[in-house]
Design a binder for these strands. Structure first.
Lengths: 233, 233
DNA sequence: CGATTGCTTGATACCTCTCAACCCAGGTGG
DNA sequence: CCACCTGGGTTGAGAGGTATCAAGCAATCG
């Protein structure tokens, strides 16, 4: 389900973006191909933990993150949850091969998204090289991401998993010594295939080993990145 | 040796092939879009356990399976191995986003492959709708495959993993009650993130529970597919 | 034949889960 | 102001599932 349906405006190359939206859309975040896409007009905003779309919904829209963090996940009948990926600014998600979403998407924290219509995308891409290249590269990146994730889940123990997650966090803010952790322990656990208790214990252990520091539960300071990288190899 | 295919000859002259790929004849297993591709001219044959390419090699070639089974895998420094996927007839593998292979590929059993040059592929795809659509759909399928795999590794216990693997096997030969298992227990274990002993035990348990039968170690007869599907949900 | 390889089975160890208690910060209401 | 509640996080004790180590079996191959 998508919010702001009432305010959706179908924009194409032929219909220039209304003035009040031009101010809102950050130029820096745009790439050439987006101009060619029929967007859903404005950016939509989702409050923390709101569902962006549900598994099985018709996949008519895909999104690009402007700000905030999104998780895609799957729920088992017995309550187990699996988080497939986290998406941050500039990431694209919800782009499906079939006609329905294979996963649910939810807002990890308050976030701002741009929505794109999928309909007519293929014919558009056929005449737009840059667009089709972009879409293709998106698909390939998703593939690499998923492969790396299964590598992580398949043959790593708890410390190594948490270390890998921390390195992903670090990569998102290059150079920063202290980073904010937007997701809960449950999010992390469901992403790593662990329990919240184990995640907590591994973080505590890494802190004891002077690899990281935890100023608060949602902040992490990297003290020994090399040790993390060794755990990840 | 090499057929009189114009594009083939041209490309062959431009860049010499790796020796182990200068194999034999083409023609079987071609589809429309493949005609547009600069092939390596021939099918290559790989004996069991032969490496097809190694992690880190320049990814100039990708493959389509004609017959046999291929595994893509990654090796850790400590000896742990992770199998990312098995590929069977009609599957495409080795198609990379970057310029180097991210995984190794090996022949699970003797197998026959068609090799395709990657160079010039993008410009070719730009003028060939069917081709670019094919490549795109391949990328998306790989993504789905990888996502399903991480789902399997993340939140399933040993029996469920083995059941999921058996269902994949069953899907490959629809309708067949008894299927041949081309891969070793080690392959299965490294694919499921288990040990060979655990795989063996779970198979034994499923046999005790009359879900399957094991006429031999490399043959599986499905006696109660419903039970398998329940384990997989 | 012995040697090797792939597989199975058993006993035990270890890692992670489960269950439980507790802490803490934030919010609510008296 | 306090009392209380709630949700997220931490920590501990014990249980359980899978890994590890070891032995044995069958098939294959020299």
């Amino acid at each position: 389900m998508v919010e702001n349906d009432a305010s959706l405006v179908r924009l194409t190359l032929e219909t220039p973006m209304p003035k009040h939206l031009q101010a809102v859309v950050p130029k820096a975040g745009r790439t050439d191909w987006q101009g060619a896409l029929p967007t859903l007009g404005s950016m939509s905003h989702f409050a923390q933990d709101r569902e962006i779309y549900g598994e099985g919904d018709a996949a008519e829209i895909f999104f690009k993150v402007v700000a905030g963090v999104v998780r895609t996940c799957k729920f088992h009948s017995d309550g187990r949850r699996h988080i497939d990926a986290f998406y941050i600014a500039q990431d694209v998600f919800g782009f499906e091969a079939g006609s329905h979403y294979r996963l649910s998407a939810e807002a990890v924290c308050d976030c701002t998204l741009i929505a794109f219509r999928r309909s007519g995308l293929e014919s558009l891409a056929a005449h737009n090289d840059a667009l089709s290249r972009q879409l293709f590269s998106y698909a390939m990146r998703s593939m690499v991401r998923a492969q790396d994730h299964s590598l992580l889940l398949g043959r790593k123990n708890a410390v190594e998993k948490v270390a890998a997650f921390l390195l992903e966090l670090a990569q998102q803010s290059p150079g920063a010594q202290t980073v904010a952790v937007t997701m809960t322990r449950r999010d992390i656990a469901d992403y790593l295939g662990l329990t919240i208790e184990t995640v907590s214990r591994m973080l505590a252990q890494l802190e004891r080993d002077a690899v990281i520091e935890l100023p608060s539960a949602r902040q992490i300071r990297f003290k020994n990145p090399t040790a993390l990288r060794e755990l990840n190899s």
